[in-house]
Simulated assay, not measured.
Amino acid sequence: MTARLPSLNGLRAFEAAARHLSFTEAAVELNVTQTAISHQIKRLEDELGVRLFIRQNRALALTPQARDYLPGIRAAFNDLRLATDRLLRKDDNVLTVSTLASLAAKWLLPRLSAFQEAHPGIDVRITTSRALVDFKAGDVDAAIRYGRGQWPGLRADWLMADQLFPVCSPALLRGGRPLQCPEDLAQ
C-alpha cells in the first residue's frame, strides 16, 4: 500500500523555505504572506508527523529528517518544472549539445556550418562543460564525452578514436638526463 501524498502547497512551501532558510523569502517567492508559509509548514509537519524546521531567534535550520527529505522533494519539483517546460516549449527546433570546450572548438564548430546547411530549420546551441550531463534536470539534448560509452540509461554512439602521443619541452631532450625512451620518464 502506498502512502498518501502530503499537501502539494505544503511541499511547495517546505521546498522554498528550505532553499532560502527563511519563511519570509519563501513567502515573497510564492507570492503569499509569511504567515501563510508558516501555517502551511505547520500543517505539513502535522500531516507527516515529523518536525522539519528548527525555529531559532531570527534564524531557521533544517532538522536532520528535513535534510534527508529535501533532495527528493526538490527533484520532484524540478521534474514538474521540466515536464511543464517541455509541454509548453515552442522551441522544438532547438538542438542543445554539450561537449568539452576543446572538442567544440577543434572538432564540432568546424562541422557546424555543413550541418546547418543540411538542416536549416534546426537551431544548434552548444554548451561546454566537463561535467556529465543530467538529461532529466537540464535542457541538453545530446552530449559528446570521452569514454567507453557505458552510461546506464543512455544511448551512446562511438564518434572517433583519440590519438595520444607524448610531448615534452625541448629542454628535457637536452638536459642532464635527456629523455630518449619511455622508461626515462621515471626519472
Results as ranks from 00 to 15, higher is better:
Ser38Thr: 07
Leu44His: 03
Ile54Asp: 02
Leu60His: 02
Leu60Pro: 02
Asp184Cys: 12
Ala61Met: 06
Arg148Gly: 07
Ala105Cys: 00
Ala26Glu: 03
Glu29Tyr: 01
Ala3Thr: 12
Ser38Gly: 11
Val97Gln: 03
Pro152Leu: 05
Gly49Ser: 04
Leu5Lys: 15
His20Arg: 10
Gly138Thr: 15
Met1Ser: 15
Leu172Arg: 01
Leu164Lys: 00
Asp123Tyr: 06
Arg55Asn: 07
Arg67Phe: 08
Gly72Ile: 01
Ala161Thr: 11
Asn93Lys: 14
Leu21Lys: 14
Trp107Tyr: 12
Arg12Val: 03
Ala131Cys: 01
Val167Pro: 01
Arg12His: 08
Val94Asn: 04
Ala105Trp: 00
Ala83Trp: 05
Glu117Thr: 15
Thr99Tyr: 06
Asp123His: 15
Lys136Tyr: 07
Ala83Asp: 12
Thr127Glu: 13
His119Gly: 00
Pro152Cys: 04
Asn93Val: 02
Asp68Arg: 14
Ile37Trp: 02
Pro170Ala: 06
Val94Trp: 03
Arg74Glu: 15
Arg148Lys: 10
Thr96Ser: 09
Lys42Leu: 11
Leu88Arg: 06
Pro170Asn: 00
Lys136Asn: 15
Tyr146Glu: 09
Leu132Asn: 08
Phe53Gly: 07
Leu132Phe: 13
Glu45Cys: 09
Gln150Phe: 08
Tyr146Ile: 10
Leu164Ser: 11
Ala137Trp: 02
Asp134Ala: 07
Gln150Met: 11
Glu15Pro: 00
Ala105Asp: 14
Phe14Lys: 12
Arg43Leu: 10
Glu47Ser: 14
Gln40Gly: 01
Thr63Arg: 02
Gln150Asn: 14
Ala161Phe: 02
Thr96Lys: 07
Pro6Gly: 06
His20Pro: 00
Thr84Pro: 00
Ala17His: 04
Asp92Met: 06
Leu30Arg: 09
Asp134Glu: 02
Ala161Tyr: 08
Gln65Thr: 11
Gln56Asn: 11
Asn9Thr: 12
Gln40Cys: 01
Ala75Ser: 08
Gln116Trp: 03
Pro6Phe: 11
Leu100Phe: 14
Ser113Tyr: 09
Ser169Gln: 10
Ala17Phe: 11
Glu29Met: 07
Val50Cys: 04
Gln180Arg: 15
Ser22Tyr: 03
Leu52Asn: 06
Ala83Pro: 04
Leu11Gly: 05
Leu30Gly: 05
Glu117Arg: 15
Pro182His: 06
Ala104Gln: 10
Gly147Ser: 00
Leu52Gln: 06
Gln116Asn: 13
Leu70Val: 01
Phe135Leu: 03
Val94Pro: 04
Arg86Gly: 11
Ala26Gly: 08
Leu70Gly: 03
Arg58Val: 05
Val124Met: 06
Arg43Asn: 14
Arg89Met: 12
Arg58Leu: 08
Gly153His: 03
Ile37His: 00
Asp157Arg: 09
Val32Ala: 07
Gln65Trp: 08
Asp91Gln: 15
Val28Lys: 09
Leu60Val: 09
Gly149Glu: 05
Leu108Ser: 03
Ala17Pro: 04
Trp107His: 08
Ala59Phe: 06
Arg111Leu: 13
Thr63Tyr: 05
Leu62Asp: 00
Pro110Asp: 05
